[in-house]
């Protein structure tokens, strides 16, 4: 897929709670197709302590308004700066990067499990599944009710189940303890904190369900040249930025 570097324009930057915000960007040209699971590298050149670009998942592409959505957690200096960006600001972005979730060709029951800001890539995946007439089940986990994000948007593409660690919304506990897992699924997609994804991978292996996980790693280039972002796989070290971020869990050397 052809990659682009261009200045996108902020159309809206909305706080979702005290930690998360939704950043919408547009382009003068029609945005190219972006696949679910792909990411972008955002330049934060108005912050003196941030040198490298920041990788962020494609949360959604709104074709009618020609907008790219990013769901961002304020975690450090770069994302802190991003949270202050105002409509009209120009932002230099490299996109779209990485591989994507493999969308099934035929009818199947699919479960999308997201935790924390890891829910980000699952919205666009929901959209792609809908185009294949597949109605997925979303299982979204967070620490507390206020950290469950974009639930109305997810509900447009499938049934949404939730867990919170403190029990303030949905079932109390971790995603892998949710009762929906009693059902049989053909395919599981997951993105979130590594311990959560490992638990999901263990569940998938035990129940013989094909599972794809979207991983993170420290990145410098995002385009496969620096080799800083490798993941141990059955085929040796592979770059998360080009061979991933999505991996089939059977290819990972995870201790689970």
């Amino acid at each position: 897929m052809k990659k682009y570097m261009s200045d996108l324009i902020v159309t809206a930057n909305t706080p979702l709670n005290n930690q998360y915000f939704l950043l919408k960007l547009t382009s003068k040209e029609t945005l190219p197709a972006m696949l679910p699971g792909q990411f972008v590298e955002v330049l934060i050149d108005d912050c003196s302590n941030v040198f490298l670009r920041r990788p962020l998942s494609v949360h959604f592409v709104d074709k009618t308004s020609n907008e790219l959505w990013l769901l961002v957690q304020r975690i450090g200096k770069g994302t802190e700066k991003m949270s202050t960006w105002q409509a009209g600001q120009l932002v230099n972005v490299l996109y779209p990067l990485g591989n994507s979730f493999s969308v099934p060709e035929k009818q199947s029951s699919v479960l999308l499990i997201g935790g924390g800001v890891g829910v980000a890539p699952l919205l666009l995946l929901g959209d792609y599944l809908k185009n294949k007439a597949i109605v997925p089940v979303f299982l979204l986990g967070a620490r507390s009710k206020s950290d469950l994000l974009m639930l109305e948007e997810f509900a447009k593409y499938g049934t949404v189940y939730t867990t919170t660690e403190d029990g303030t919304y949905g079932e109390k506990g971790f995603v892998t303890q949710h009762s929906i897992l009693q059902q049989k699924f053909d395919k599981i997609y997951t993105c979130g904190p590594t311990p959560m994804m490992k638990a999901v991978a263990a569940y998938s292996l035990k129940n013989n369900i094909s599972c794809e996980a979207s991983l993170e790693n420290t990145m410098a280039c995002g385009i496969g040249v620096c080799l800083c972002c490798v993941q141990d796989t059955t085929d040796g070290h592979r770059c998360v930025c080009t061979d991933g971020p999505v991996f089939n869990i059977k290819d990972l050397k995870w201790q689970i």
Binding site: V50, F51, T218, M219, A220, C228, V230, H237
Partner: peptide
């Protein structure tokens, strides 16, 4: 195969690989 990861740290105006 190269080294284990993490392989990169951002620093003030630079990086360590």
């Amino acid at each position: 195969e190269g080294n284990a990861y993490p392989r990169m740290a951002e620093t003030a105006s630079g990086m360590i690989n």
